[in-house]
Every structure is written in structure tokens, then in C-alpha cells.
Design a protein around this nucleic acid. Sequence first.
DNA 1: TGGCAGGGTCATA
DNA 2: TATGACCCTGCC
Length: 293
Amino acid sequence: MKQMNKSFSFEAESFDPAAIFTCGQCFRWREQPDGSFTGVALGRVLNVSKKGNEVLLSGCTKDEFDSLWHRYFDLDRDYKTIKRTLSKNPKLKSAVKYGGGIRILRQEFFETLLSFIISANNNIPRIQGIIENMSRLWGEKTVFENKEYYAFPEPSALSGITAGDLAPLRAGYRAAYLEKTVKSYLRGDIVYEELCEMPTDKARRALMSLCGVGPKVADCILLFSLGRFDVFPTDVWVKRVMAELFSCAEKDACKKGCEMFGEYAGIAQQYLFYERREQSRENEKKEKSPAAS
DNA sequence: TGGCAGGGTCATA
DNA sequence: TATGACCCTGCC
């Protein structure tokens, strides 16, 4: 498939491509030398950049924006009000300011499910590599600006897949989880449309019935694919920040986050996670080259 | 070369 | 409910 290189632009305040694509919610967007981001999502390739308040999407017509990307970028949601509400908590204020350009993407369910199973006890470059290789092996090729990209595999393309078939991905013990969960999905054990109708806690339990999906992975799927903002995905980073800010025990971090931030818990988690991890990265850089600062 | 952490989950007690 | 094992990689 070859994609026409059309473009479309729109105005948005709460929209920072770097924050959106590096805050940890997605794995298939890469920064380009000019500071823009190119990624594969919804079976297409898109380049996103921003100047002032204008967001430029290259590789997308107005019709595609209306039918696909508008929803993907969660553009109907009023982030200004969310940020104002969360900023009332003094301990959240700096994180909200720091990650103010984050938007929670509405990612495809099957891709989000498998991606976050792969993410378990894993590091980000390796997660990205595994997903990239998986797409290369079983996804559809698209050419965009003379470069090859691969869409995340359709469920049917992974029909009959075994952990042995997945071995080249070097996903380790997660390969067995992927095999079982793909089988469950294809059997209809879990159906996206049904999850959409369920209250969050019921959908969470349903997701956790899948192999490789524990509380954290289930919450990521609920937030990043189903748009449920009342979950608080709690990984090691979030546990750390909850301990630092609210003197919260590790085992209570998830419950505490949901209680404190309620209907906006998911986006609060992203602000906290993004600020904490970026600061940690900056500190690492300084430690490696103290003269540079 | 060896130990350890890395966006957890699963099985077991 | 708590603990250890689990695949694999990169870093120190």
C-alpha cells in the first residue's frame, strides 16, 4: 500500500507532540531530525508537528482527520478543565504544568492489549523493538515518503501463532502469554465492543482473565484504548512518585491514586509519570556529563 | 565477568 | 496476601 502525502492542520492548545508520544502510552512513534514525530497507527503512517498553536498532520486528508485522527487524538475532550481541576491539588501542580501538552490517545484495542503484555517487566527500547519486529513479520507494509512502515498485525494475521513462531521476537516468557491471549481473542473470549459497554471495574476483571494481563496492564488498556480516565495504572515509577509526594505505601498506590483523582485518575497518572521519568532522565544525563550543565 | 534493573504476571504457599 | 521465578537486554 502506498499512502498519499496530503496534509491537514488544526488549532489546539493542549497538544504537545513530544509529550504525547514520549509519555509512555504508545510505542510506535519516533522523533524525526526536524523535531516532528512519525508513527504508525490505525493502519496508517502519520507525521505530526506543531508550530505555535497549529498542529500539522502530514499523510492525512480532512476526511481521514474527521473519521480517524480526531478520535485518536481525543480532540473532543476538554483538557483545560481537567488541568485546572487537577492543579487545585498543590502537589500535582508542577506535574500538570510539565505535562500540560499530553493527550491520552485512543489506540486500537488489539494492538494496545498485546503491546502492554509485552511491556511487562521490560524496558522501553526493547518493547519498541519487539513490537516493531512483530509488525514487520505479520503486519501490512505501507510506503510513506519513500520509507517502509509496517502496521501492527491484524488479529487474523496471528491466527494459529505459537510461542515458537514468536521466538524471533526475543520476547522471552511473554511469548507464551501472547500465544494464549491471541487465541482467547480470536475465540471471542474478550470483545472490544462488549468491554466498551461495561463499567470500568467489570471491564478490568474481564481483561485480567487474559493470560499476561495483570492489574497494571489492564489499567493501561482501559486508559489508552478504552478512554477510561478513572483508572490509575501503577508501575514502579508511579509507586515511587506516590511514595515521595503522598507518603503512600507501594501496595496502596493504585487505590490511593483512584481515590484522590477520581474521574481524572488516568490523566493525573500520566502527568506524574511523565514529569518523574523525564526528570530522572535529565538527572542521568547530568551525572554522565557534569561539565555540560 | 557477574550482578542488577527494567512501565509485571503467574504459581505457590 | 506475600514471595520467588520467569526471558532477555543493556549498563556498570
